[in-house]
Design a protein around this nucleic acid. Sequence first.
DNA 1: ACGGTCGTCTGACGGCTCGTCAGATACTCT
DNA 2: AGAGTATCTGACGAGCCGTCAGACGACCGT
Lengths: 212, 212
Amino acid sequence: MHEEMLATDGRIIGERAIATRQRLLDATLTLLRRDGVLDVKVVDITREAGAAPATFYQYFPDLDAAILALAEAAIDDEAPLVDLLLPAWSTPADAERARAFVDAYARYWSEHYAVLVLRNLRADEGDVDFRSVRSRANLLLVRRMAEMVKLGQTEGRIAATLDPFAAAAAMMAMLERLLAYQNELSRRGSSKAAQRETLTTILFHTLSGLAT
Amino acid sequence: MHEEMLATDGRIIGERAIATRQRLLDATLTLLRRDGVLDVKVVDITREAGAAPATFYQYFPDLDAAILALAEAAIDDEAPLVDLLLPAWSTPADAERARAFVDAYARYWSEHYAVLVLRNLRADEGDVDFRSVRSRANLLLVRRMAEMVKLGQTEGRIAATLDPFAAAAAMMAMLERLLAYQNELSRRGSSKAAQRETLTTILFHTLSGLAT
DNA sequence: ACGGTCGTCTGACGGCTCGTCAGATACTCT
DNA sequence: AGAGTATCTGACGAGCCGTCAGACGACCGT
């Protein structure tokens, strides 16, 4: 189950090299946060990591490859969120669990913000690798949400006109994007608490058919 | 009401220069679509526009300034969408109008995709100018949607726990982001028609309190 | 301890874009 | 036609990209 790590020339790398590679990834994350998503330079990353620019290219063919590796790592933090959707929400009391999910997703998103934004950019542009990593991350949640909708439909709580998969994707879209607006929104009239409650209400209703 | 256009050195520019400036903006749009959002070079823009690189900097201090101008222009196409939200949706038959709004917004979004993505990136990063232009564009719709929610609440159609402004923003977020997922989604199980119906259902319910 | 070997790292380079001048060019008006 | 202004450009220093050939250093066998 443990993949050998490779350098760009194909050779299997040892312990020292793995540490260097990791230092480069850490530095990339640091600079993504410090300089913003569009202004990260390879030179700066290597400076930050205390290495020569050429070292970077020994482990990543380009900057995107490093971002991709970080996006892969982020999947591990998204996976546990599925547990908060089990079992399906089916009584008004489950609204509390919806709230917990919203909170957990918000934490996940803010933790990985820069990497996820870049991942989405590249995936939207059509890059196959970034599409794949995004799918693997999101399908975990989307599939589960779609099941919740389907169950709600068979139990008559949710209208049959809703497409379960599309509804699930819509909820993910809403969560993702609204979290980016968060700061600006709270400057324009809706407190974070109000945003949280509103997200919870809409999410809970869409996935369970119930009102809060 | 008509602002004089200025060069970067502050002088008011004449007709020929306005045309050149416009050619540069057109070229920027072309390349944003051709090369993707992250790979547009000033040199390429001027090549495309048949001008020297230095000419670009006569009208825009940097690439962002040109994008900002394009984002300003996009507002004109977002404004008319407000009309589709007047008067408020209050009967099941109004679902048809919600559908029309979803379609119109989808058209607007795909028309301006590249510019809007960059606008959001810069705005999310905290850039004041991009924040301002995004607010001016989105507040038109968000304010109107918030009014619809408020009305629905006074008429007892919508739960009072929903924050009108946050709910409106959540709907915008859902629309924006889901449209970016559109292609991938239709490859994974939900036809565009199903996505459209699902968006309509959720939007209609959130803003009117009614089922489709 | 010592030289050899292989894995890892780096200095230095050509090629490119950026953004800025000073000066060339094109238009306008008399 | 010629003066004057508006507009454009060639050429440049600076900085990043991505690639080599070779330097370094950790570990091995003797």
